[in-house]
Design a protein around this nucleic acid. Structure first.
Lengths: 107, 107
DNA sequence: CTAAAGTGCAACTTGCTGGTTGCGCATACT
DNA sequence: AGTATGCGCAACCAGCAAGTTGCACTTTAG
C-alpha cells in the first residue's frame, strides 16, 4: 500500500539534516558519505546513517563501486508525497487543486 | 525566510500521528481536540499538543468559539513543501518537472 | 447558583533518534 | 607486500519529543 511509503518519505524528510542531504545529493547528481561529510560539521558515520535512512525510505539509491558507495536521487517517492499533499489540500486551495488535476492527467 | 517555514512543515508532517490528524481535520472541515481524541487511542491533551504543533507550523488555524477551540486547515504551507519537492526532484523526474512548470506559471 | 463540559498549563516519565567512538573488513595505491 | 583509503557494524551517550497525569480556569447547562 502506498500510504505506508508516504509515511517513510515524510519521516525521512522531517529531519532538516536529511533534507539538506537530499538537496546536496540532488545538486551533485551523485555523492558518497565521506564527500558530503567533508562539508558538514558531523562525522562520516552520521552522514552514512542518514543516507542509509534515506535509502530505506526509497529517496536515494546506493551503488557500490569498488571501495566507495555512491548515492543518487530516486525522485519517485516524492511524487507520492506530492500526491498526498494535493489530495489533502486540494479541496481547500485553488493552486493545489490545479496541481491535483495536473497530476491526475498523467495517471 | 521561506525555507525555514518548509522546515517546520516537514517536521510537523514527519510524525504519522500528526499527518493523520491533518487528514482528519481536512475531512471534517473543522474539528476540536476532544472530537478527534474520541476516535483515537490517546488522550485529549496529546491531541491538543499535536494540533498546537501543527498550528505553529502554519498548517492549521485555531479559532476559539465560546468554550471550544475549532481547528481548520490552512493549506498554503503545503504549497511551499510541494515547491521544495518539485524543485529538488524536477531535474530528475519528468512528472515533477511538469508540476514545477505548472507551479511557476502561477507565480 | 451549582454542576458539567471544554480547554490550557505544567511537571514527569519514557522511548526513540541523531550523534559519537572504536573497531574490522575490503579495496586501491606505490 | 605494505600502507592508506573508504566503508559498515555495534555499542554507547545525550537530548528531545510524545504521551500521561494532575490541576486550575472559563463557559455553557439545569
Amino acid at each position: 500500500m502506498r500510504g505506508d511509503r508516504v509515511d517513510h518519505v515524510f519521516a525521512a524528510l522531517g529531519d532538516p539534516g536529511r533534507r539538506s542531504l537530499v538537496e546536496a545529493v540532488a545538486a551533485r547528481g551523485t555523492a558518497t558519505a565521506t564527500e558530503l561529510a567533508a562539508d558538514l560539521p558531523v562525522t562520516r558515520q552520521a552522514v552514512a546513517k542518514q543516507l542509509s535512512a534515506l535509502a530505506d525510505a526509497g529517496l536515494l539509491r546506493a551503488t557500490r563501486a569498488g571501495r566507495e558507495t555512491r548515492y543518487e536521487l530516486t525522485p519517485e517517492p516524492l511524487e507520492d508525497a506530492v500526491a498526498w499533499m494535493v489530495e489533502v489540500g486540494g479541496r481547500w486551495d485553488a493552486r493545489l487543486a490545479k496541481l491535483e488535476r495536473s497530476l491526475e492527467e498523467r495517471r
